[in-house]
Design a protein around this nucleic acid. Sequence first.
DNA 1: GTTCTAACA
DNA 2: TGTTAGCA
Length: 138
Amino acid sequence: MNDEMRRNMPLFPIGTVTKLTDLTPRQVRYYEQQGLIQPERTNGNQRLFSFNDVERLFEIKSLIEKGINLAGVKEMLQKNHQILEANKEVEKAQAEVVKVKQELSERELRRLLKRDLLHPKLGRTSEVYGEFSRFFRN
DNA sequence: GTTCTAACA
DNA sequence: TGTTAGCA
């Protein structure tokens, strides 16, 4: 069970959430209605909030207290989401660059070893080939 | 006792 | 947004 799963696990009824956040049940339900949070439901249709939901409610509350209306809060949250998604893509691209670099350096190493085997200058060619034979499979 | 939806002074 | 009514 990783952190992501923990943070998204439905745990708290609305009463707990209102005590945590000092928001009213009316506000919490309204924010859900506006699509700012998506708490799970029990079989009996009662809301269950995750840590992520509670954190988001704190964000919403602080923005509201700064005088930002719900439409503004909505925008900021989705902008924030867009930024997070963009960062993910950047990280992916960076990982890809690292991977390509590694592949290139392996090709380079393979080329160098092959050259040395075709033109052996040492008397230990067979041992060298055995050590690095994994580079020649293709 | 708590939470739900819907509606309204 | 607060609050109330009527349910589950």
